[in-house]
């Protein structure tokens, strides 16, 4: 096993709101190895996006990173100055793309400029060099006639094309890590597949490690090497994608799989959605946050938050059931 490129330990990010403290990310740890894809899955509000923003320290007030370490190439990103983050990390070593390509490009600047400015900011390039590099990047992400398209404005591009432009800007500095926060959620289904294919190609071609955030297990299945399942701000299950998909051990993960339509399902089998809604992590009751929706809830679940216990290999599960009986509880 190679040395992790990014190592997040005990990350806590909270939002101090009038109604209380929202613990969006609560003691989350994970590692990302070079060239691998880590998928983070969860429902909306589970803290996956805030986890991603925390890595780049882009959480705005009233949100605040309150604890933990984010080790990247021997340094803790939480110790860096804002200027160091701007100069050496964001857009340089770690690129990020976001959910909504329609609003992620600045409407008043040509798309090429919005790529070239990344090159200018990080690579000491002249205007002409960065322009050429931007055109090259536009071609790389599959935009036809990149020279002509350089000076077009965002409103001339479709959602899928805009996401390609944003990917080009994110990889302009050939980052070590690309964070993709639900990169296809806002797009049409056919375009989704194209964008995911592009991300996969680029990731393999440049050996970029990737953090892929999604609520879509199908996306994880096709793209990810490792998986982290989040629920109410905590990681409830981690492991290699293959392990987790074959033997989900947390009742929440199992519930996610049960609520999916599979190709090999018989046409008459029923979907089983998880009953209830995920909690808003403000002033959570003690114990496991999934308890109210859990089929296997026990007395202890209301008393203690289950800790994320290591299992075989990289497998970790945060469930009292799993610690009580190592075999699959759903059996």
């Amino acid at each position: 096993m190679s040395e992790p490129l990014l190592c997040v330990e005990g990350l806590r990010t909270s939002f101090h709101l009038e109604g209380g403290v929202l613990r969006a990310v609560n003691d989350v740890s994970f590692a990302l190895e070079p060239g691998r894809v880590l998928g983070i899955v969860g429902e909306s509000g589970s803290g996956k996006s805030v986890t991603a923003l925390s890595i780049l320290r882009l959480v705005d007030p009233p949100g605040r990173i309150e604890g933990g370490r984010i080790r990247f190439r021997g340094r803790d990103l939480l110790d860096l100055s804002e200027a160091e983050m701007e100069r050496e990390i964001r857009g340089d070593r770690i690129g990020m793309i976001f959910q909504d390509p329609m609003t992620s490009l600045n409407p008043v600047f040509p798309v090429g400029v919005q790529i070239a400015e990344v090159v200018e900011a990080h690579q000491n390039a002249t205007r002409e060099e960065s322009r050429r590099r931007a055109i090259e990047l536009l071609g790389l992400v599959g935009i036809p006639h990149p020279e002509d398209r350089f000076s077009d404005y965002p409103h001339h591009f479709s959602g899928g094309m805009r996401q390609r432009v944003l990917i080009a800007a994110a990889i302009a500095s050939q980052p070590d890590i690309l964070i993709a926060d639900e990169p296809t959620t806002a797009l049409d289904v056919t375009i989704q597949a194209q964008i995911l294919g592009l991300l996969g190609d680029l990731q393999r071609r440049f050996g970029t490690a990737m953090v892929l955030i999604t609520h879509d297990l199908g996306v994880i299945a096709t793209m990810a090497d490792d998986v982290m399942v989040m629920y109410a701000g905590r990681a409830v299950e981690q492991g290699s994608a293959q392990d987790v998909f074959e033997r989900p051990r947390h009742p929440y993960t199992q519930g996610l799989f049960d609520s999916l339509i599979r190709l090999d399902d018989s046409p008459h089998s029923e979907l089983r959605p998880i009953p209830g809604n995920p909690p808003v992590p403000i002033d959570l009751p003690p114990g496991c946050s999934f308890r109210p929706r859990c089929r296997h809830a026990m007395d202890i679940c209301g008393l203690e938050v289950p800790s994320l216990l290591p299992g075989a290999g990289r497998r970790r599960v945060a469930c009292h059931l799993a610690s009580a009986q190592p075999a699959s509880p759903a059996a």
Partner: peptide
Amino acid sequence: GQNYIRVARAKGLRRNLILRKHAFRN
């Protein structure tokens, strides 16, 4: 508060440049 400002920050542009170029122009 717009998304493209967050994108600009994620690109590692300097705060001043974001204020002067991206935000002010809009």
